[in-house]
Write a protein that binds this DNA or RNA. Structure first.
Length: 423
RNA sequence: GGAGAGAUGGCCGAGUUGGUCGAAGGUGCAUGACUGGAAAUCAUGUGUACGGGAAACUGUACCUGGGGUUCGAAUCCCCAUCUCUCCGCCA
C-alpha cells in the first residue's frame, strides 16, 4: 500500500510509475475523493468538539441541580448529524482504502521498464550447464524410474499437481531442507522460524495477497484461515503492529514451510513433474531493514540464496525482473533461475524482492531511530532460499548418470548418508 | 466441546452507583541536579493515528476488536477474538 499523503502530493509521478507496470491508472477520482474526505472530516470533528464541550456543561448543570433538557434535545439532533457524517466518512475511507489496496508498488528506478518478461535483464550466469554423453532425462522420468517419486498414487489420494516422495526421494527432500536451513542459520546469520501453515485474513492482507489474489490461495471453508502460499506471509507478519528498536535491525529470519497454491489459471502449464504443485516445500528468507540499507540488504539476501545453489554445484543465472513482470508488492525483484537439463533451459527457483515500505505500511511494521523519535516504517524483503522441490528436480537432472542413477552433491552426502541414488 | 474468570499506556496496576479520565500510582526510559564516577535521592518529561497550522500549538479518535444504549461510555448491553482456571476429548 502506498502512502496516501505521498499519492496526494505526487499524483503525476505515481501515475507514471504505475504506467510502467502496464496498467493505466488515473488517480483523479482518488484525489478528488480524498479532498472531500478531509472536508467531511473537518466538519465532523468540529461537531464532535462542540458535543464534547456541551456534554461537559450538561454534567455541570445536572450536578448543580439545574434543568438541561433543552440543550440535551439540541445535542440529540447534533448527535444524529454526527452519526450521519461519520457514516459518510466511513464509506469514503473504505473507498479510498480499496483503491489504495489495489495500487501496486512503485518500481525502483533501477528496474528495467517493459511490459513482460522479455524485458528482464540477465545480471550474471554462474556455473556451466553439464555436458552429457547421453540424452538427459526429465526429473520425473528419473524419479519414477528410481522409485523415489510417485505421481500416479499422489493423484489417487489427492489429485493433479501433488507428488509422493518415497525412500531416498523423501530423504533427499528432507536433506535439502536441512541443508538450506543450516546454511542460512550458521553461515548467513539468519534466525530460524517455524510458523503456522495457516494464517488469518489480516496477515494475508499485510503482505498483499489479499484482497487482490484471493483465488490463488486455498481457503479453509467456514473459517478465516488460509493455507499459506509462502512462509513470507506468516514470517513477515510476525512484527505486525509493533514498533521495533533501530538497534535490532536488520532482522534476518529464515523459515521452512510447506506452501500451498491453488494455481488457478495455470491449467496446462508444467503439468508434469515437481515444477508446479499445489503443495511444495520452500525455505524462505525474510528481512526487516532500515530504509537506507534495504537495497544493500537485497543484494546480500540474493547472494545468500545464490550461495546454496553454488554449494550444490547447480548452474544458475540471475535476472532482474522488468516493471511488467514484477510482483504486485515488489519495488525490485531478482529471480534466480536454475539450469534444468531435461528442460534445456533455466527455470525460476527463487525470487528475491525488496518491498520497501509497501508491506510495512499494510502490516504496520515500524521502528524508532532514537528514544522519543517518531516511528518510521521499516523496509521488508524476502526471497526463496530456495524452492525445495525445484532444487530436487535440478539435482536429479543435473546429477543424473548414464546408468540412470543420480549422484548426490557432496554437501548433501552428510545429510543423505549415501553418495548416490540408484535402482 | 462444556463451565467460569479476565483483556487498561513500554511493563505492572487503579478505575464498574456512566460526566471533572488520555486515564491515579508504581516501574521502566530520557533529560537535568547532586557525585571524582556510579548507586541512591530529587526535579522535569515520557503513547499512536488523523485533521488544521509556517510554527508554537490545537481539534478529533483510540482503555483487545466490532456493534448498541445515552446529551455524554474505560465504565452499561450484545457479538467476536485472545488469555487463564476447571471438566471432557485428543497427538
Amino acid at each position: 500500500m502506498l502512502d496516501i499523503k505521498f499519492v496526494r502530493a505526487n499524483q503525476a509521478a505515481v501515475e507514471e510509475a504505475l504506467a510502467k507496470r502496464g496498467g493505466k491508472i488515473s488517480l483523479d477520482g482518488f484525489i478528488k475523493l480524498e479532498a472531500e474526505r478531509r472536508a467531511v472530516l473537518a466538519d465532523v470533528e468540529n461537531k464532535k468538539a462542540r458535543r464534547n464541550a456541551v456534554s461537559k456543561e450538561i454534567g455541570k448543570i445536572k450536578q448543580a441541580g439545574g434543568d438541561a433538557s433543552e440543550i440535551m434535545a439540541e445535542m440529540r439532533s447534533l448527535g444524529d448529524e454526527i452519526a450521519a457524517a461519520d457514516a459518510r466518512l466511513g464509506e469514503m475511507e473504505q473507498q479510498l482504502e480499496e483503491i489504495l489496496l489495489a495500487i501496486p508498488n512503485i518500481p525502483h528506478e533501477s528496474v528495467p521498464v517493459g511490459p513482460d518478461d522479455s524485458f528482464n535483464t540477465e545480471m550474471r550466469r554462474v556455473g556451466e550447464p553439464p555436458e552429457f554423453d547421453f540424452e538427459p532425462k526429465n526429473h520425473w522420468e528419473i524419479g519414477e524410474e528410481l522409485g523415489i517419486l510417485d505421481f500416479e498414487r499422489a493423484a489417487k489420494i489427492a489429485g493433479a499437481r501433488f507428488t509422493v516422495y518415497k525412500g531416498l526421494g523423501a530423504r533427499l527432500e528432507r536433506a535439502v531442507i536441512n541443508f538450506f536451513l543450516n546454511t542460512h542459520c550458521d553461515k548467513h546469520g539468519y534466525t530460524e522460524i517455524f510458523p503456522p501453515y495457516m494464517v488469518n485474513s489480516a496477515a494475508m492482507r499485510g503482505t498483499g495477497q489479499l484482497p487482490k489474489f484471493k483465488e490463488d490461495m486455498f481457503h479453509i471453508e467456514g473459517t478465516d484461515y488460509y493455507l499459506i502460499p509462502t512462509a513470507e506471509v506468516p514470517v513477515t507478519n510476525l512484527p505486525a503492529g509493533e514498533i521495533l528498536d533501530a538497534a535490532e535491525l536488520p532482522i534476518l529470519y529464515t523459515a521452512y514451510t510447506a506452501c500451498f497454491r491453488a494455481e488457478a489459471g495455470a491449467a496446462g502449464r508444467d503439468t508434469r513433474g515437481l515444477i508446479r504443485q499445489h503443495q511444495f516445500n520452500k525455505v524462505e528468507l525474510v528481512k526487516f531493514s532500515l530504509p537506507e540499507n534495504s537495497y544493500d540488504e537485497l543484494e546480500k539476501l540474493t547472494d545468500d540464496a545464490e550461495d546454496v545453489l553454488r554449494l550444490l554445484g547447480l548452474p544458475y543465472r540471475v535476472v532482474t525482473l522488468s516493471t511488467g513482470d514484477m510482483g504486485f508488492s515488489s519495488a525490485k525483484t531478482y529471480d534466480l533461475e536454475v539450469w534444468l537439463p531435461g528442460f534445456n533451459g533455466y527455470r525460476e527457483i527463487s525470487s528475491c524482492s525488496n518491498f520497501e515500505d509497501f508491506q510495512a505500511r499494510r502490516a504496520n511494521i515500524r521502528f524508532r531511530r532514537d528514544q522519543g523519535a517518531k516511528p518510521e516504517l521499516v523496509h521488508t524483503l524476502n526471497g526463496s532460499g530456495v524452492a525445495v522441490g525445484r532444487t530436487v528436480a535440478a539435482i536429479l537432472e543435473n546429477y543424473q548418470q548414464a546408468d540412470g542413477s543420480v549422484k548426490i552433491p557432496e554437501v548433501l552426502v552428510p545429510y543423505m548418508g549415501v553418495t548416490q541414488i540408484s535402482k
